[in-house]
Computed example of a mutant assay.
Amino acid sequence: MSKVVHLIKLSAGTEAVEQLQRWQASARAQGPDGYPRHVTRMWPKREAEVLAGGSIYWVIKGLIQCRQRILRLDEVTGGDGIRRCAIVLEPEIVRVAPAPRRPFQGWRYLAEDDAPGDLRPGRETDDTLPPELAGALAEIGVI
């Protein structure tokens, strides 16, 4: 069995997890099968490891705040004729313990051991801390 690896991606322009949820519920973010997808230029070279149970971890306001399980990778061709990768995602967005992350372009691999843990059941509805405070607390290991 393949080792699991995750992807990490900035959610550009997103202010909160709820905004990501609204975007993914829109018709523009969904494929013909109704699943949300993120289209990217690059195809993961570690495809087997990603598809062995990997998730995409979303960075919002400088913090990893949530994840979605990756269901599959679909090839899509844009109107410009360029082949791209559609990362097809499970609709459920799972909140994770906030973890600071510096800006980067594209996506990166995230080892399973380095991925932040899911929030305990019941914590998903806790009041959201301001990103600056959550980042400061995460840096010192409080959350």
Rank of each mutant, 00 (worst) to 15 (best):
V4M: 09
I8N: 01
K9W: 11
K9D: 08
T14A: 15
T14I: 14
V17N: 07
L20K: 06
L20H: 09
L20S: 11
R22F: 01
R22T: 11
R22E: 09
W23Y: 13
Q24M: 14
A25C: 10
A25G: 15
A27D: 13
P32F: 08
D33N: 14
G34S: 02
Y35S: 10
Y35H: 15
P36Q: 05
R37V: 00
K45F: 03
R46D: 10
E47F: 12
E47N: 13
E47Q: 15
L51W: 03
G53W: 03
S55T: 06
I56C: 08
I56A: 02
W58N: 08
G62N: 04
C66E: 11
C66M: 11
L73T: 09
D74I: 02
V76Q: 03
D80H: 04
G81C: 12
R83P: 14
R83Y: 01
A86M: 10
V88R: 12
V88G: 06
V96M: 04
A97G: 00
A97S: 07
A97M: 05
P100N: 06
P103R: 05
P103F: 03
F104D: 04
Q105C: 05
Q105D: 09
G106T: 05
Y109M: 02
A111E: 12
A111R: 12
A115E: 03
P116M: 04
G117T: 08
G117A: 12
G117E: 13
L119E: 00
P121N: 03
E124A: 11
E124Q: 06
T125A: 12
D126R: 04
D127L: 04
D127H: 13
T128G: 01
E132R: 09
A134R: 00
A134D: 10
E139A: 15
I140E: 10
I143N: 07
